[in-house]
Each structure stands twice: as structure tokens, then as C-alpha cells.
């Protein structure tokens, strides 16, 4: 068994309920920590006795503690979401490619998030805002199912105060909501994107990412300046088991962050 396959022990130091089914856990090393995590990478989180799942980091890179945002959709995620402070979890990683948001130095950085896809992008956003002068505009377009299902909603004012332009839209809302209603791609034209000088990072359901990438291409952006975070069945995390294969890519190693130039033909291929 290689070192990357042995989980490190981390203790849940705090938990924050984001929505009715989504929790952000802050994890502190209970022994030797894993290597430094970069924005966009993921870890394998192990709920002992139940199972292991891939979860992207959602906190600012370079921190001692890990922030991981988890939605309860199955046995492992439900167990992780229910964990109280003090509980021990296993952590393997970090794995995969990163957003490389620093590449957008001197350019506009556009982040487009759908649903819990905001979690991996939060990591890049916090990194960018901690070095705000490096970029021209930092724009975050966020889509959610409803106002109640918007994750990190209580941080948006802080992001704006730190120099980000943030627009939120929801699929459905009652009359108490005074924000945008509609799909996130509709916000793109309202931001006044500067296509040749923009780097876009997209994370959300795959259909949403495809549509967003197409909308950005329609503005004149090049596919090479658009990056997506793809998800498949990551298991080993070290490109050995093949469960996360997408054409020539093993997404635990070659992803999750992939240029749209590479991803576009793969996402359009049936039964890949």
C-alpha cells in the first residue's frame, strides 16, 4: 500500500450547516497532515466503517485546516454530514489538477457556479481575493435552485467587500426574494464580459457547465481560457483503478479541472 492510499487522521473541528442537506466541515490534522492543497483539488474523505468519497476542498488554499463542503446524497455523505465536532475522519490526497487561478493575472477572472459547484470555486475565489490586485475584475456568477439552497450565501457581502462582483440567480423563488431569477448563463451578458481578456472557471452539474461554456464561446472567448471541474467515479485517486476514466483522461489525475478545449469533444461523445 502506497502512502497516498493510507488515510491521514483529521478531526472535525467545526461544522457549518450550509443548507438543509449540505454541510461544511473544518478538519484539523490529528496526526501528520496531508500535503498542501491547491484550489480545485480534491481529497478522498473516509467515514470509517462506511466508505470513502471524493470531495473538493472549499477553503482557502494553504491553510492548515481543510474546509470540505459535503452534500448528503448517499450513505457516506450522509454520515459525513452528520459528524459532530471532535469526530475523526480519514483523509487521502490531495489529488488532481487545480484551477490555476493565478494564471489569470492581469486578466478578468470569471467564476460561474451552479448549486454545490460553488464549493470548489470558493477555494479559487478566496485565493483570488487574498491577492486581489493581481487581477482586473473578479466576477462570480452563482446559480442555485432556490434562495434556501444557496451555499455560502452569508459570505457574499464579504466577497463583494473584498473586491468581487457577485451576481446570484435562482431557479425559483417566492415574492420575498429580491434577486435574479433564471439560469446562470443569462447573467453572462449582464456582466459585460471582455472575451479576449477573461479566464473562466466553471463548476456545477455537467449540463450546466456545457451550456455555460457554450455561452462563453458565443461571447468570443476561446475554449483554452475556459476551465471546468469534471466529476466521475473517483475511487483510488492515483490513476490506477480506472473508475474515473473519461476517454483518454483519468479524472482523478488529469482532472478534475480540465480545459474546455480538452473537455468539449469528450463531453459531446455518447457512452464514453
Amino acid at each position: 500500500m502506497t502512502l497516498s492510499q493510507v488515510p491521514a487522521s483529521y478531526r472535525v473541528s467545526s461544522r457549518r450547516d450550509e443548507t438543509h442537506d449540505t454541510v461544511t466541515l473544518t478538519l484539523e490534522p490529528a496526526g501528520d497532515p496531508i500535503a498542501a492543497v491547491r484550489a480545485g483539488q480534491f481529497t478522498m474523505l473516509y467515514a470509517f466503517g462506511i466508505g470513502e468519497i471524493p470531495i473538493s476542498v472549499s477553503g482557502r488554499p494553504g491553510q492548515h485546516a481543510l474546509a470540505q463542503t459535503i452534500r448528503a446524497v448517499g450513505a457516506v455523505t450522509t454520515a459525513l454530514c452528520a459528524m459532530p465536532a471532535g469526530q475523526i475522519v480519514g483523509v487521502r490526497g490531495p489529488f488532481g489538477t487545480c484551477w490555476d487561478e493565478a494564471d489569470a493575472a492581469g486578466r478578468d477572472l470569471l467564476l460561474v457556479a451552479g448549486g454545490i459547484g460553488l464549493a470548489p470555486l470558493r477555494s479559487a475565489l478566496l485565493a483570488a481575493l487574498s491577492d486581489r490586485q493581481r487581477y482586473r475584475r473578479v466576477i462570480a456568477l452563482i446559480g442555485a435552485r432556490s434562495p434556501a439552497e444557496l451555499v455560502f450565501g452569508d459570505e457574499i457581502d464579504d466577497w463583494r467587500a473584498s473586491g468581487a462582483e457577485v451576481m446570484v440567480t435562482v431557479d425559483r423563488a417566492d415574492a420575498s426574494w429580491h434577486g435574479n431569477v433564471g439560469v446562470v448563463t443569462q447573467l453572462i451578458r449582464r456582466t459585460g464580459v471582455d472575451p479576449p481578456n477573461t479566464t473562466a472557471l466553471i463548476c456545477g452539474p455537467e449540463v450546466m457547465m456545457r451550456l455555460t461554456a457554450r455561452s462563453l464561446l458565443a461571447t468570443g472567448m476561446s475554449a483554452g481560457n475556459i476551465r471546468l471541474s469534471l466529476e466521475r467515479n473517483m475511487q483510488c485517486g492515483v490513476a490506477e483503478c480506472g473508475h474515473c476514466q473519461l476517454g483518454p483522461l483519468l479524472l482523478c489525475r488529469d482532472g478534475p479541472v480540465v480545459s474546455y478545449q480538452v473537455a468539449e469533444p469528450l463531453l459531446a461523445t455518447r457512452e464514453l
Binding site: G114, G115, I116, G143, A144, R145, E149, D171, R172, G182, V183, T185, Q186, G204, P205, V207, M208, L211
Partner: peptide
């Protein structure tokens, strides 16, 4: 856009 919202992608 209406069709995409019907899909309820974020569910």
C-alpha cells in the same frame, strides 16, 4: 432557459 430550469439540475 425555461427548458433548463424544468430539468431542475441542482436537485
Amino acid at each position: 432557459a425555461a427548458r433548463i430550469r424544468i430539468l431542475d439540475l441542482y436537485a
